[in-house]
Computed example of a mutant assay.
Amino acid sequence: MYLVHAALQPAPPGRPLPGDARELLWAAVRPEDGVEHVVVHPDAVPDPVLGVYVLANSLASAEHRASEFCRRALVAVPEFAGWKAMKVAAPLVTPFYERLLSAPAGPGRNGPGTLPSS
C-alpha cells in the first residue's frame, strides 16, 4: 500500500473545502481504483491536500491510480466543481526524519549514544 498526496487547487482561489470533503470523495471510490482510505488535510498550505492510500504493485502505479481517481472524483462530485488535483505524488518523509535526528532528545534513541553505531 502506498500513500499518495494530491494538492487540491480550488476555483476560485481561496475557496474552502466542503465540510464533508472526505465522505464525498470516499463515496466516489470504485473497487478498481485500489483506494483503501482517504484523508483530507484542509489546512495544508498553500492549498488543501488529499491523502490517498492506494494498493498497487509499484509507486508509479500507485501515483497513476491516485491521479486517475482524483481527476474522476473531482469532476463527478458536484461540490468539487472547478477543483483540480495539481501535484499527485508520494510525499517525501525526509524533513520528518531530519527533525527527529536534530531534536535535543539526549543519548539513545534519535541521539548520540554510547555505542559507535548509535
Rank of each mutant, 00 (worst) to 15 (best):
M1G: 14
V4P: 12
V4S: 07
A6Q: 11
A7D: 15
L8Q: 07
L8F: 10
P10W: 09
P10L: 05
A11H: 15
P12A: 10
G14S: 10
P16K: 05
L17V: 14
P18S: 10
G19M: 04
D20T: 13
D20I: 07
R22N: 09
R22G: 15
L24M: 10
L25M: 07
L25Q: 09
W26A: 14
A28Y: 03
A28L: 00
A28P: 03
V29W: 02
E32L: 07
D33Q: 01
H37Y: 10
V38D: 09
V39N: 06
V40W: 10
V40T: 14
D43A: 08
A44I: 02
A44K: 01
A44G: 01
D47K: 00
D47E: 07
P48R: 01
P48K: 02
P48N: 00
P48W: 02
L50V: 12
G51Q: 02
Y53K: 04
L55T: 11
A56D: 05
N57K: 15
S58G: 13
A60D: 05
S61E: 14
S61P: 02
A62V: 00
A62P: 02
A62L: 00
H64Q: 12
R65L: 13
R65S: 14
R65C: 05
S67E: 14
E68G: 06
E68K: 08
F69K: 08
F69Y: 14
R71H: 07
R71Y: 05
R72S: 09
R72A: 10
V75I: 11
V75E: 06
P78Q: 04
P78H: 04
P78E: 04
E79F: 07
F80C: 06
A81W: 05
A81K: 12
K84M: 08
K84S: 14
A85V: 14
A89C: 03
A90C: 06
P91I: 00
L92M: 00
V93K: 03
V93G: 06
T94D: 06
F96V: 15
Y97H: 11
R99L: 14
L100T: 12
S102G: 04
P107M: 08
G108D: 08
G108N: 08
R109V: 11
R109I: 08
R109P: 03
N110A: 13
N110I: 07
N110W: 15
G111T: 04
G111D: 07
G113T: 05
G113Q: 05
L115F: 00
